[in-house]
Design a protein around this nucleic acid. Structure first.
Lengths: 208, 208
DNA sequence: CTAACATTTAGTACCTGGTATTAATATTAA
DNA sequence: TTAATATTAATACCAGGTACTAAATGTTAG
């Protein structure tokens, strides 16, 4: 309908760049937007009102800026912070066993499966960090000990191949020796037929 | 007026045993509230509307329940999840390093501190799980390598003493040898003056 | 059976922190 | 002056609530 009015909001300054036209006011805008982006990244919990006070402009201007910069509203920002972190935290600190327990023969052996994902890997390479593979092995080793609580004494570990996120790891643990309250457990982790990790754990049962 | 119609949808056959109906109403409420609390704790992102559909009651009932149970509204729940994890998560998965980096001399050595807490320990014994100590060591070893990405090849580890939650661990890492893109790093973790962990990491830089 | 009570539902006004749209007003370069 | 750009304003609307009032519907004791 009123093409004129609409065309204003449809032509964001950052994309126009008609040579030398931009000066004075345009710079203020660019600087504000840069600073705005920065501020919101640092503190996603700021409302448009707080931002408008900080920059000394109207709320509408802040909203236009967010629109042009593609920054979502407060609630969406908070939500994504919450969602992004909710799952991760549970997986690393919530449970006792890392991965899914597939089979267990208490006091003898056990098997678990870990489906790796991006949150476990280095961003650039998609290679899963060692701590997650280690955690799978350690927690399975503890699980096979038929005792209420067990604790690692010594571990001797070898990472044989890098693992990429998305790959499924299957761990086998076997108690190979027992002396009193000390258990010697071998854990091998395979990716398909390839062994990617092996380690020897010496665990100490703390039961009386 | 609409009450009759609603009461139909309130009796989903399987759940209301006619024989026990005498003791009924009060227990239904208590059970629903217990279940509600549980559900919200597990998934804080549920709206009252979704909850009302799940329990087959009106939105108002859900709100009354929340009021009685002291459960805040959706936005407050999300906000507290976001706020609570915003700081923590950066250290465990957002950043590459576990613990706080105290000092670093890139390519030579580094030092980090990890304040252990209950979430890192076995509930019964308060003994910190090995994976967290390991993660501190591994991530520090990676941090001292002056390269964009590094990956663990082999690790030889010894846990010398159990650590209880609440104790502060100080890790020292030192590059002891370098051969091409392979780095040999020693990491020692101490609790006060006592050494609780030592390990040798062989890291491979993936930079071209 | 009925009155008293608990439980549940309905309806309304209001709140925050927005979106989307239209329009008016500065500012400024050419 | 004129046209483009930037800012502000005003309005209608939305989700997901709070707070409150009123009423309908069980439930149960007497």
């Amino acid at each position: 309908m009123l093409r004129k009015a609409v065309s204003w909001t449809m032509a964001p300054a950052g994309e126009r760049e008609r040579g030398v036209i931009l000066a004075g006011k345009g710079k203020e805008k660019k600087e504000r937007q840069k600073s705005l982006m920065d501020k919101i990244v640092k503190d996603p919990f700021l409302t448009d009102e707080e931002l408008s006070e900080h920059f000394g402009v109207s709320i509408q201007t802040i909203r236009l800026d967010r629109l042009e910069l593609g920054i979502p509203e407060l609630r969406e920002r908070i939500k994504s912070v919450a969602e992004g972190t909710y799952a991760k935290v549970r997986s690393i600190s919530g449970k006792e066993i890392v991965g899914e327990l597939l089979d267990i023969d208490l006091g003898k052996k056990g098997m678990s499966m870990l489906e790796t994902d991006d949150s476990m890997a280095f961003e650039k390479t998609n290679i899963v960090r060692g701590q997650f593979i280690y955690a799978q092995a350690e927690s399975l080793a503890i699980a096979v000990i038929d005792a209420d609580v067990a604790l690692i004494g010594v571990a001797n570990i070898k990472y044989k191949q890098p693992v990429r996120s998305g790959q499924k790891l299957v761990a086998h643990a076997e108690i190979i020796k027992r002396r009193g309250n000390k258990f010697f457990v071998w854990v091998r982790i395979k990716l398909k037929m390839q062994e990617v990790f092996r380690g020897k754990f010496i665990l100490v049962s703390l039961d009386e």
